[in-house]
Write a protein that binds this DNA or RNA. Structure first.
Lengths: 165, 165
DNA sequence: TCTTGTGGTCAACTGGGTTGACCACTGGGC
DNA sequence: GCCCAGTGGTCAACCCAGTTGACCACAAGA
């Protein structure tokens, strides 16, 4: 049985099947750092789904709530709730859809774009910490290897970015 | 503004701060595959917290519910619920603690160890897919780089492995 | 012995998700 | 042009894995 500790013992060739869990642990560590910095800066910590919403809206103009729900893999009711909150808090605005009178297009406000920019900056900090440890070349190699996996898995489709567990 | 699509466009040097999100997306992809295979095999998909419980118990004998709660970063009430379920389903057993009459030690049953072994096998499949794409050398390099980050972040402590978002 | 702390459970609540029902509107078939 | 199945959006009720709060049995050092 592979009961060997998967923790931070570090060396040796690595057990088969260990890498996926290492991915999860590293992302968790970076995410913790991200939220710690956010708290340090006194910024309200929007929930994960909000961050993904921002990122989606920044790259998809004229997106509707239903589009967002599909991307996040949640029901449109749930997406609608999130959108209502973010609108109430001034991060995004709803406008009538140009061609469909049922629908509304969503767009980030200045405040929303600022928040996303800050988030990008904090992720960059976390990434930089890793770069300092392993060097820019290795980081770039890792980035390519990750991208290779996504390209293979999703082809030309967009990789889903959303909360998971 | 960094509104460039973070999806699977693939090439180019990569945007700063992109790697943490790539980690999340790759883990998500592997996790999806994991659950798809589990469903294929007709195995009931225990919730994530259950898997982490198994992994913890396999490497920590005489663990108590409170230990588990601390490791998972949840309240002992929540841990107690999970333990009760897993016990009811035959995956673990509770025995009186040798030195403390309040406490109970937790241990996997045969059934629990079997499930963990299956999980390891499915993670190995996901990892293998990546190895096929980038080669064993690159995978091993990635594994070391991930481990380096964890070692730096947690030192000699155990890296937490738990649900997150 | 007393006091403080800890393992474990019961109960009530929270919140982000769900399913279900519904209306307003779209758009293709005829 | 008229239908009608399909879709965008919302309201309402519910679900459930987590929370906080209260509590008891026991532990362990003063």
């Amino acid at each position: 049985m592979s009961t060997k500790d998967i923790a931070t013992d570090g060396d040796g060739p690595g057990l088969p099947g260990q890498v996926p869990l290492l991915l999860a642990m590293v992302f968790r560590a970076m995410n913790d750092q991200f939220h710690a910095r956010l708290a340090e800066l006194g910024r309200e910590p929007l929930r994960p789904a909000h961050g993904y919403t921002f990122r989606y809206l920044a790259t998809h103009t004229d997106a509707t709530t239903a589009d967002l729900a599909a991307y996040l893999g949640i029901t449109k009711q749930a997406a609608s709730k999130a959108v209502a909150e973010l609108h109430e808090w001034g991060y995004l605005e709803r406008r009538p859809h140009p061609h469909d009178r049922r629908a509304q297009t969503l767009a980030l406000t200045r405040r929303g774009r600022d928040y996303l920019q800050l988030a990008d900056q904090l992720w960059t900090e976390a990434e930089q910490l890793w770069t300092d440890l392993i060097g820019a070349d290795r980081l770039e190699a890792v980035r390519r290897d990750l991208q290779t996996y996504l390209n293979h898995t999703y082809g030309d489709n967009e990789a889903p970015l959303r909360p998971l567990w």
